[in-house]
Design a protein around this nucleic acid. Structure first.
Length: 310
DNA sequence: GGCCAGGCTAGCA
DNA sequence: TGCTAGCATGGC
C-alpha cells in the first residue's frame, strides 16, 4: 500500500501526503539559494520543469506545486495547459519522489523527541522531508560539482552547466530549465566544461559519469534494485565518487535513510553550533552520537543542514 | 594573503 | 589498510 494518495482531478493532481508532512519547511529548503536554476519559489508555489516520461518525449512539462490547507493536499497544476492523463500521473509520482513521500517518518519523529542531540532542533522542523533528486545524473553532477568548493561557487558552476547544456522553456517572461541530459554530456570533451570553470578533474568526473549512464552501465533503476551496501559499492566504483558523494546520492536520490555523509563540513558546522561547542566535533565524536540515529542518519543529517539555512 | 570550502585520487609505506 | 600530497578555484 502506498503511503500517499494521488488523485487525478482532470486539470490538476492532488496528493495526500503521509503525516507528518510540513510544506512550509519544505519551502524553506527550496528557497535556500537565490542562485537555484532548476526550480523557482514564488509566494507559496514551487515551479519546476519536468521532462515527460518516454515515449511521451515531447515538450517538458511545467509544474506549479502548492499546498491546499483546507484539504491538506499538495496540489499540482499545469500552467502551460493540461497534459495527458499519463503525464499527469507521472507528475504526481515525480513530486512524491522529489518530496520523499514514500518514507514513513514515525520512527524519526520519535528520535526527534528522544535523542539528546536531535531534540535540540527546533520542533518546527517536524514534517520536513528530504527534498531530493528524482534524476540520478542530476544528483551525481551536483554532488561532484559541490566537492571541496564553497556552495556559492558551486551554484555558479551549476547555473552555467544548466544554462549551457540543459533544455529550457520560457513562459510569462520566466525561463524554466531542465538539468542537462546525460547523453548530451557524454558527448563532451573536458575542455567544454573547464571553459565554465570546472576544474579538469570535475570535468572528467562528470563526463565519465554521464558516459556510464548513457551507455546503460549505471542507472537509478539498477541502484534501487540493489541492497543499500551494494548500491554504495556501485557508486564508489565511479571515478570521482568517494564515500561522501555515494552517501549523499543514496540519501538524496535513492531514499536510503541510513546514508550518512559523515565527513560533510556542513554537518560538522551544524553540530558545532547546535551543541554550543567552541570547535567542530570530530568524525569519531559524531559517530558516537549517531549510534542512536541508526537507520535515520540521512534524516538526521538533513535536519542538521536545515539549521544552516537560518 | 592565507585559510577554508557540502572531497577525491593516486601513490606510498 | 591507512595516510597524505596534490588538485584547482572562488569567497571571505
Amino acid at each position: 500500500m502506498s503511503l500517499f494518495t494521488i488523485s487525478d482531478g482532470e486539470s490538476r493532481v492532488n496528493i495526500v501526503p503521509p503525516q507528518p508532512f510540513n510544506y512550509e519547511e519544505c519551502l524553506v529548503f527550496l528557497s535556500r539559494s537565490a542562485q537555484e536554476v532548476l526550480h523557482q519559489v514564488k509566494d507559496v508555489y514551487v515551479y519546476k520543469l519536468m521532462s515527460p516520461p518516454p515515449p511521451h518525449r515531447v515538450e517538458p512539462v511545467l509544474l506549479r506545486i502548492g499546498w491546499e490547507p483546507a484539504e491538506a493536499v499538495i496540489r499540482i497544476e499545469f500552467p502551460l495547459g493540461v497534459p495527458s492523463r499519463t503525464v499527469r500521473e507521472e507528475a504526481g509520482r515525480h513530486v512524491c519522489d522529489w518530496f520523499d513521500l514514500g518514507t514513513p517518518l514515525a520512527g524519526f519523529d520519535d528520535l526527534l523527541r528522544s535523542d539528546p542531540v536531535l531534540s535540540r532542533l527546533p520542533s518546527s522542523y517536524r514534517g520536513l522531508r528530504i527534498i531530493g533528486f528524482p534524476d540520478l545524473f542530476e544528483a551525481l553532477s551536483w554532488a561532484v560539482i559541490g566537492q571541496q568548493i564553497n556552495l556559492g561557487f558551486a551554484y555558479t558552476l551549476k547555473r552555467r552547466f544548466v544554462e549551457r547544456f540543459g533544455a529550457e522553456l520560457t513562459h510569462g517572461g520566466q525561463t524554466y530549465r531542465l538539468h542537462p541530459d546525460c547523453r548530451v554530456i557524454a558527448e563532451l570533451e573536458p575542455a567544454e566544461l573547464t571553459a565554465l570553470q570546472f576544474t579538469g578533474r570535475k570535468a572528467e568526473y562528470v563526463i565519465g559519469i554521464a558516459r556510464a549512464m548513457a551507455e546503460g552501465e549505471l542507472s537509478r533503476e539498477r541502484l534501487l534494485q540493489q541492497e543499500q551496501a551494494e548500491a554504495q559499492q556501485t557508486l564508489l566504483a565511479l571515478r570521482g565518487v568517494g564515500a561522501w558523494t555515494a552517501d549523499y546520492v543514496r540519501m538524496k536520490c535513492l531514499h536510503h535513510t541510513d546514508a550518512f555523509p559523515i565527513a560533510d563540513v556542513g554537518l560538522h558546522n551544524a553540530l558545532k553550533v547546535l551543541l554550543g561547542w567552541e570547535r567542530k566535533p570530530t568524525v569519531e565524536e559524531i559517530r558516537r552520537m549517531a549510534e542512536l540515529w541508526r537507520g535515520w542518519e540521512a534524516y538526521a543529517t538533513f535536519y542538521l543542514w536545515r539549521t544552516l539555512y537560518v
